[in-house]
Nucleic acid binder design. Structure first.
Lengths: 330, 330
DNA sequence: CTGTTAGCGCGTTCAG
DNA sequence: CTGAACGCGCTAACAG
């Protein structure tokens, strides 16, 4: 059995339905698409046949005729092999899926390596018009990406606040300032005074959320009239070799990977065990880790649903109520 | 700007190319598809125009005409919310992607909740013929799934050995018996004698790999003339409340989630700290966990590439060299 | 080697 | 309210 025959198994078309119902193709099409001007009688007759023969529209033909694919894309970073396994990623994805499937759309995942736009499946999908819109994580939203999207007239929403904001770029993110402020306050409320925030130099330049988390931390510290102290991981470690430095009571890691890096080295310092650890994005692994980790629930799933909703607004009406959305932590 | 205009930005078609080159549409199509019988002159002329105008074929039209979508699907289990974040899942996925993109195919992710086939995007994609073939994880490969796939004549490969083997079902899996034997031997070689394997009753009935891992364990124990002892998690715990029982020297967890369950309860038993822990699928989180975990490298990425290769063989030639593939651990 | 003629399955005028 | 005719962009016979 060749694929050509295989693919035509039992697939009834709109034309055959029309013949069976004794009406025209166009009429069937109208019934199927809920067109208003149809007599109840013909509608029922057509629907009966549709049901009985288990008619399923051909998505390709429909797309070709209507210039729509009924598919949205989700682009993910393939540079870091762990991107997909990232709980962050997958929770957002879940929110997206709920919305996408509720709309009866499909969902095309595309990988893209940073700085490899030209050969990515992302570029291919966009230029071939296999999607009606796309969600792009902020890490992948470069100048080149933006240019391609705009040039192709492809609706898009950035997931995560882009570093440089532009008027025609719509995005959704959690409110990192608020989340960080809240997390910091939670530690302070536990009686800890010397709370510091740890960041990575490279991240700080590239990721807006790192800046925001530092900012939120500062606000909470300021509100308690405490001196904020931000540091890179190496700087924190100096506290254990130098003598003048005091050991912090708690460390807030601006990213989870920093926390992991810390765990790798902390074992060398006995004093490190008493430090309270905190980060964002609670993960199911936390409770199995060497030390207890304080984490704040951030609304990742909501981020996915909001992003998808924005994208559909763009696809449907080509306009947005708000240019961007910040989701506060509860 | 409405989507209809937006979508037609700058998109040159095969027909226009033909006019510019002064040839027929069909000729352009032949050039584009690398058809043999074309004079070098017309080929060059056509290609020059194609390049200059940045022609990109319309995937939908191509698919409609050739009855092909140039897309393969990957179905994942949405029942367990963590499925996508599972390192297992994502490593396999990576192997799949490499093959799929190398073939210039696209990649459609579909979710499916167990026992919810009818309303899944999976069923939709398959019946609407939006893919040329699909990869299905064994957990989702139920009777109903199989029936749908066969009824629609959709080529498929099961990822992971199905519990019940059937002649027309092709699959790829790692060699779990071999991997388990190897892992067990590694523990025995460390001088540990009382090594036991832990399984979950429900998993054992549903997942073939659990049976295989138990089998591999037994072989290694047998080869060392040791008495194999398999137990469920509750049974293992009894060792700590009863008195007659001895504390095992090592525990092999047939799944990672069992290991996690163990970690949750182990803290209560001081004797538990000395037990060596082992499992399959090394994960990046292991090294941050409370206790050291012995793990064996299994060829997950190869599993993905092999599965994809099998699928393409099915799509292209509708036949397979081997009905299934078992990948040994190195 | 290349042009002609038909569709693929569906949406969408434009009449009536 | 419904039918006829055409087009979406491309591939696939069949000629020549």
């Amino acid at each position: 059995m060749h694929w050509k025959e295989r693919a035509s198994i039992e697939k009834i078309t709109i034309k055959e339905i029309a013949e069976l119902a004794g009406v025209n193709k166009a009429t069937v099409s109208r019934v199927l698409n809920g067109n208003a001007n149809i007599s109840a009688r013909t509608r029922d007759k057509v629907m009966e046949i549709v049901k009985r023969h288990n008619y399923v529209p051909n998505a390709l033909a429909k797309g070709l005729a209507s210039n729509r694919t009924y598919t949205v894309g989700f682009c993910y970073d393939y540079t870091e092999k762990q991107a997909v396994s990232n709980p962050f990623f997958q929770t957002v994805l879940q929110g997206v899926e709920d919305v996408v499937y509720a709309r009866n759309f499909l969902f095309l995942m595309m990988s893209m390596q940073r700085d490899q736009l030209a050969h990515s499946s992302f570029a291919k999908v966009v230029t071939e018009r296999r999607i009606d819109g796309v969600l792009v994580p902020t890490q992948l939203f470069t100048e080149a990406t933006h240019r391609l999207l705009r040039q192709e007239g492809m609706p898009f929403v950035v997931v995560g606040e882009p570093m440089i904001s532009q008027p025609d770029v719509h995005w959704v993110d959690i409110d990192n300032v608020q989340a960080s402020e809240k997390l910091t306050r939670r530690l302070l409320d536990q009686g800890l005074g010397d709370v510091r925030i740890v960041y990575d130099e490279a991240d700080k330049v590239r990721d807006k959320f790192v800046l925001d988390r530092i900012e939120g931390y500062k606000r909470a510290m300021g509100a308690s009239r405490l001196k904020p102290r931000e540091a890179t991981l190496p700087q924190v470690e100096e506290a254990f070799v130098g003598e003048a430095e005091t050991v912090p009571q708690a460390l807030i890691f601006s990213t989870e990977s920093l926390l992991f890096d810390w765990l790798d080295t902390a074992a060398s310092y006995p004093q490190a065990h008493s430090i309270r650890l905190a980060t964002f994005d609670r993960s199911p692994f936390h409770r199995h880790m060497k030390y207890a980790v304080e984490a704040i629930e951030i609304e990742l799933e909501a981020m996915g649903t909001e992003a998808a909703d924005m994208l559909f607004a763009l696809i449907d009406k080509n306009e947005l109520a708000q240019p961007y959305i910040k989701i506060p932590s509860k």
